[in-house]
Amino acid sequence: MRGSGKSWTAGVVAEELASKGIPFIIIDLMGEYKTLREKFPVLIAALGSPDYADLKGLTPESAGTLAEKIVNMGISLILDLKYGTMLDRYRVLASFLEGLYYTEEKVARPYVLIMDEAHRITPEKGVIKLRGVREAQQKIEYWVYEIGASLDYNEPVLVMKNGTVMMLPIGELVDRYFEKDDWGRRYVDDLQVPSMNPKNGQIKWKKVAYVFRRPAPDALVRLHLETGREVTVTEHH
Rank of each mutant, 00 (worst) to 15 (best):
residue 1 M to W: 07
residue 2 R to A: 12
residue 2 R to M: 10
residue 5 G to P: 00
residue 8 W to S: 12
residue 9 T to A: 15
residue 10 A to Q: 10
residue 13 V to K: 11
residue 19 S to T: 05
residue 20 K to P: 02
residue 21 G to M: 07
residue 22 I to T: 12
residue 23 P to D: 10
residue 23 P to A: 08
residue 23 P to G: 11
residue 23 P to R: 01
residue 26 I to E: 10
residue 28 D to N: 11
residue 29 L to A: 10
residue 29 L to S: 07
residue 30 M to T: 11
residue 34 K to A: 11
residue 34 K to V: 02
residue 41 P to C: 10
residue 42 V to F: 04
residue 44 I to Q: 09
residue 45 A to F: 02
residue 45 A to D: 05
residue 46 A to F: 06
residue 50 P to L: 03
residue 53 A to V: 06
residue 53 A to L: 04
residue 55 L to C: 05
residue 58 L to Y: 05
residue 66 L to H: 06
residue 66 L to M: 02
residue 70 I to P: 01
residue 72 N to F: 04
residue 72 N to H: 08
residue 72 N to S: 15
residue 73 M to A: 15
residue 80 D to N: 15
residue 82 K to N: 03
residue 82 K to T: 01
residue 82 K to P: 00
residue 83 Y to V: 13
residue 84 G to H: 01
residue 86 M to D: 09
residue 87 L to V: 09
residue 88 D to F: 01
residue 91 R to E: 14
residue 93 L to H: 01
residue 94 A to N: 08
residue 96 F to Q: 12
residue 98 E to H: 14
residue 99 G to W: 03
residue 101 Y to S: 03
residue 101 Y to E: 10
residue 103 T to D: 09
residue 104 E to Y: 00
residue 104 E to R: 04
residue 110 P to V: 11
residue 111 Y to Q: 06
residue 112 V to W: 02
residue 112 V to A: 09
residue 116 D to M: 03
residue 117 E to N: 03
residue 118 A to H: 07
residue 118 A to L: 08
residue 118 A to D: 02
residue 119 H to T: 08
residue 120 R to Y: 03
residue 121 I to V: 15
residue 123 P to G: 03
residue 125 K to Q: 14
residue 126 G to I: 02
residue 129 K to R: 14
residue 131 R to A: 12
residue 134 R to N: 13
residue 135 E to K: 12
residue 136 A to D: 06
residue 137 Q to P: 08
residue 140 I to S: 05
residue 149 A to T: 11
residue 149 A to H: 08
residue 150 S to R: 12
residue 155 E to G: 04
residue 156 P to V: 11
residue 161 K to I: 12
residue 161 K to M: 13
residue 162 N to T: 05
residue 163 G to Q: 08
residue 167 M to W: 03
residue 167 M to H: 01
residue 168 L to W: 03
residue 171 G to N: 03
residue 172 E to R: 13
residue 173 L to R: 07
residue 174 V to A: 04
residue 175 D to V: 00
residue 178 F to Q: 06
residue 178 F to E: 01
residue 182 D to V: 02
residue 187 Y to T: 01
residue 187 Y to P: 07
residue 189 D to N: 15
residue 192 Q to W: 00
residue 197 N to H: 09
residue 199 K to P: 02
residue 200 N to M: 04
residue 201 G to I: 05
residue 202 Q to H: 07
residue 203 I to C: 01
residue 203 I to D: 05
residue 205 W to T: 12
residue 206 K to W: 03
residue 206 K to H: 04
residue 209 A to Q: 13
residue 210 Y to V: 10
residue 210 Y to D: 10
residue 217 P to M: 12
residue 217 P to L: 14
residue 223 L to T: 04
residue 225 L to I: 05
residue 227 T to S: 15
residue 231 V to T: 13
residue 235 E to V: 07
residue 236 H to V: 01
residue 236 H to K: 13
residue 236 H to I: 00
residue 237 H to M: 15
